[in-house]
């Protein structure tokens, strides 16, 4: 159980990125956080990853406070962030460098074949396409079998077809070890395809506007009328969330 309690984050420049946020994520749950830029969604992910510390409040995993990066928490960034001087298999092995060499090789081979890159093990990162590089980054994050996987707009730099392909693929990967996943995205469709629960955030200061669990059957069909219905509702919500407050709240969060 991942528990975020009354978390506040103020940056040294005075910006209040998060104003007292509460959120609980169940084991194996897939949670999507959507919101416009500046709503604090990436900040929240960095606090859970341990890369940054909250100004106030606490983040804990199974009762242990997160005070820095931990082996049980993996992360995939918006860019693949592969080490250009390492071949793909060595990049993936980064995540399990403490294991004995034999087991490491076996786990890396397994992770690469799961993401469909078995034949690229010895290649350099510069030889991969954007989608392949992001698959390698997924393999690197998953090879250590983390309990929690954090994804910070992982597919936003990819073209639409590759993005859909990787979204479907991510669910297959999730099915192996069923880690808790927190996905930050600005793509409503992506959130609806992947997530059990969707949290819409709003800026100035960053806070949760609404949290919904669309009761859509899996695998989710992007063209299903019910899916589209949810998509429009959430788009409207997102639109209202990113609008500057005018003084009178004409768009209450209770619309859903």
């Amino acid at each position: 159980m991942l528990r975020i309690a009354n978390v506040r984050k103020r940056y040294p420049n005075g910006l209040l990125a998060l104003a007292g946020l509460d959120l609980t994520v169940a084991p194996g749950e897939i949670l999507a956080i959507v919101g416009g830029s500046g709503c604090g969604k990436s900040t929240l992910l960095r606090l859970v990853s341990g890369l940054d510390r909250p100004t106030a409040g606490s983040v804990d995993l199974d009762g242990t406070p997160i005070v820095g990066p931990r082996a049980e928490i993996g992360m995939v960034f918006q860019e693949p962030r592969l080490m250009p001087w390492l071949t793909i298999d060595d990049n993936v092995a980064f995540g399990i460098r403490h294991l004995p060499a034999g087991e490491r090789r076996q786990r890396v081979a397994e992770a690469l074949s799961r993401v469909g890159l078995a034949s690229h093990a010895g290649h350099w990162p510069r030889e991969l396409s954007g989608g392949q590089a992001q698959r390698a980054a997924l393999a690197r994050a998953l090879v250590g079998r983390p309990q929690v996987l954090l994804l910070d707009e992982p597919f936003s730099a990819l073209d639409a077809l590759t993005r859909q392909d990787l979204q479907d693929h991510l669910l297959d990967l999730w099915a192996y070890d069923r880690p808790t996943m927190i996905l930050v995205t600005h793509d409503i469709e992506e959130a609806l395809v992947l997530a059990d629960r969707i949290v819409v955030m709003q800026p100035d200061p960053g806070r949760i506007r609404v949290s919904v669990s669309p009761p859509l059957a899996r695998p989710r069909d992007r063209l299903d009328p019910e899916f589209l219905d949810w998509k429009y509702k959430l788009l409207a919500e997102l639109d209202h969330a990113s609008r500057k407050p005018t003084g009178d709240e004409t768009f209450p969060a209770a619309a859903i």
């Binding site: 990066p69 962030r81 080490m83 001087w85 980064f94």
Partner: peptide, 24 residues
């Protein structure tokens, strides 16, 4: 961004220097 990958994997100072900073 590459240094952050090392942080995510819990690199020690020594690992950070030898595995990321020097190769980079």
């Amino acid at each position: 961004k590459l240094v952050e990958v090392g942080r995510i994997f819990g690199f020690s100072h020594r690992e950070m220097i030898t595995r990321i900073l020097l190769p980079a």
